[in-house]
Write a protein that binds this DNA or RNA. Sequence first.
DNA 1: GCAAAAGTGTTCACTTTACACCCATGT
DNA 2: ACATGGGTGTAAAGTGAACACTTTTGC
Lengths: 236, 236
Amino acid sequence: MSSKKGAYSYKFPRPAVTVDCVVFGLDLEAEHLKVMLIQRDLEPFAGQWALPGGFVREHESLNEAAERELREEAGLDNIFLEQLYSFGEPQRDPRGRVISVAYYALVSPEAHEAIASTDARDAAWFDLEEVPSLPFDHKQILTMAKERLKGKVRYRPIGFELLPEKFTLSQLQRLYEIILETKLDKRNFQRKIHRMEILVDTGEVQQNVAHRAARFYSFDEAAYKQLERDGQEFSI
Amino acid sequence: MSSKKGAYSYKFPRPAVTVDCVVFGLDLEAEHLKVMLIQRDLEPFAGQWALPGGFVREHESLNEAAERELREEAGLDNIFLEQLYSFGEPQRDPRGRVISVAYYALVSPEAHEAIASTDARDAAWFDLEEVPSLPFDHKQILTMAKERLKGKVRYRPIGFELLPEKFTLSQLQRLYEIILETKLDKRNFQRKIHRMEILVDTGEVQQNVAHRAARFYSFDEAAYKQLERDGQEFSI
DNA sequence: GCAAAAGTGTTCACTTTACACCCATGT
DNA sequence: ACATGGGTGTAAAGTGAACACTTTTGC
């Protein structure tokens, strides 16, 4: 099992290495976080819903592997993706020693539609509260991903990744209420957001709503970077 | 290169998997963070200083591998250890594809002494500002570990891991000043610490110091857990 | 006109910050 | 007696939390 390369002196069997991705989406109507699962077509656990993922190839980095799997299995490209944690209990995979580098991803509602359009027909969204039983240690990975999201969303502007390009302040507030599992005060929330000056008013408003139309905003990346440079911090 | 196990359909060469550890120590006199490096005895980079680490064995978890390497190479046992990040650029190791799961560890001055006593004679402490050039992507790993420590120490009680069992408030303050690279106000700092009620006064005081003797405190794990249960948070 | 969500200010409590002096001890 | 670091209080500013009504729109 040792390598053919002369300089290589590793004498133990090598584990296989996979990436697994926790893809979060947001259902603002149902007020739920969603996670994307795919129906496995290979053993073990063929037919079961599982996190999208697969083996890391020889000439790609871990990030590239995660991006490729999301593209191939979920039809998702160019989305927020960040490494979560690596899982390596010896018995976590019945096939043998498999180490999984887990990632989490955040996708906007626009990107949701990509799933239907591509060959990722085995992918589906599940309410985070109604996830079926998952193979391997995918439940544990999912739990950790949710904790990471919950912890990070408060002090990094990653929540916007879950919203459409243009969104209302109410949608943004609902996002935080869903992720943080708490109610927020509307006036305090809006003041806080406005104070940071990281949103731009698109000038557009809601159409055909049976109440006063809300303004659409979008996240201003440049303004956020300026905020950081000024020693301020994003914070909800 | 495919596995002998029938159920296993992975057709790509497997990467090797290593763990690498960034071990931090604190030099309160010199007011510097230190990092432990070991002199490599194997190629590649034999003779160079590098992060302690090595290959993950077949029947051990990633955590166990990191613990074993620290024991074998640094004579360190039972210390704070947490996974940092996994590094997997295809060219990061000249031997071929090697994925490294990085950890960071915090050791108290008492544990420093372990190094001299064991067979870890190739281990040595370096001021964080005076680290020699490191092989592989170890510099990048070290940088990320430092950022993680800097970020985490403010809202988790992990700083205590770098102090002796019993410490003075000034030592604790100096710890934060060193890690956060900032000056703190003594009165405000002490008030903050006391308000959390997570330290116990050991009743002991400094001996043979040419000034009023400081009290020794120790971190009260149980009190901290109570604080958490009360919905409060550790914070500096 | 009514239902439904948008938008907007003020007060109070608490936390953070800035700041200076006396105390205990060894030499 | 002096040098050294230990230990302590107070006032001002800023931040976070609580709280209710008017506006706009579609039906």
